[in-house]
């Protein structure tokens, strides 16, 4: 594990060297949060109520802030892997003394955490200005743990999409569709609490909710029982997806033909 830790810390250092770029990129969350504020303020006003499906306007906005942070901080791992497959550079990575998937996981985690810091900062400032202080800080360590596990599930999906380049070459369509799954069924654009009950039950059983909705909902209403349920679901999905991506990687490698170079 030592070498993967070294890869991770190197990537952290690399990314933090361009802190200005990260700060500029985090401006996106300000725009999104501001638009969400206009939409949800008008909605709560139209409903003439302080609470919709158990969420106040303040909770909804902080929920969306965390959901946006998770989405906007995600590195494009599927693109990196599929490009390596398409241009053949994967051949140079496979003979290095590390596991290809763990290498990308370490690099991706470095990218995710650095972007997350800046998105969280920008997002929190704008959310605080718009709707007031954040939820109970005692829940934050649990949220961070849930975000990391959620990211690992996401990594399995994105690596799987990247590896699909071995079969289909072009993976953009899979990337878009997966992203929209996270947007809708993951609860990034709208909390699952606002879904009709039948759709909410389906969405909550799927892995996308464990990536976005679970951590974001825990953030606005932290409690140990909610965390335990979330953790159990995340571990199950991580185990299943980890197995699938490992098998897919082994299969993909058997298809690879390297002609010198």
């Amino acid at each position: 594990m030592k070498k993967y830790w070294a890869i991770f810390t190197t990537q952290l250092t690399n990314r933090l060297a361009y802190a200005g770029d990260l700060a500029a990129q985090s401006l996106s969350i300000v725009i999104f949060m501001w638009i969400f504020m206009q939409l949800w303020r008008a909605t709560y006003r139209a409903m003439g109520t302080d609470e919709i499906s158990g969420l106040t306007l303040r909770q909804t906005l902080w929920y969306l802030m965390l959901a946006e942070t998770i989405i906007l901080s995600k590195p494009r791992i599927s693109r990196t892997i599929s490009e390596a497959v398409k241009d053949g550079s994967i051949a140079y990575m496979l003979n290095k003394p590390y596991n290809f998937l763990l290498y990308h996981m370490s690099v991706g985690l470095g990218d995710y955490l650095t972007a997350m810091i800046f998105n969280l900062l920008s997002g929190s400032i704008i959310a605080w200005l718009l709707v007031g202080p954040p939820p109970d800080p005692r829940g934050w360590p649990l949220v961070l743990a849930a975000m990391l596990l959620g990211w690992l599930i996401d990594f399995c999906f994105t690596a799987l999409i990247g590896l699909a380049a071995f079969v289909t070459e072009e993976v953009s369509a899979f990337e878009w569709i997966y992203q929209k799954m996270l947007f809708i069924l993951g609860g990034m654009l709208i909390p699952l609490d606002f879904f009709p009950q039948w759709l909410r039950s389906i969405a909550q059983a799927l892995p996308f909710a464990y990536t976005i909705y679970g951590p974001a909902r825990l953030f606005v209403e932290p409690d140990l029982a909610r965390f335990a349920t979330l953790l159990a679901g995340q571990i199950i999905w991580l185990g299943a997806m980890g197995l699938v991506v490992t098998l897919m990687f082994r299969r993909s490698i058997s298809w690879l033909t390297i002609n010198g170079g």
Binding site: S172, A173, W176, K180, I184, I190, F195
Partner: peptide, 26 residues
């Protein structure tokens, strides 16, 4: 795949508004 994928992508994105207006009407 890009053309079909984008149609599906847009349709899925629009589901947000379908769910939204199912709950709030206007």
């Amino acid at each position: 795949s890009q053309v079909a994928g984008m149609i599906l992508n847009d349709a899925m994105y629009f589901l947000f508004w379908v769910i939204f207006f199912n709950k709030f009407e206007q």
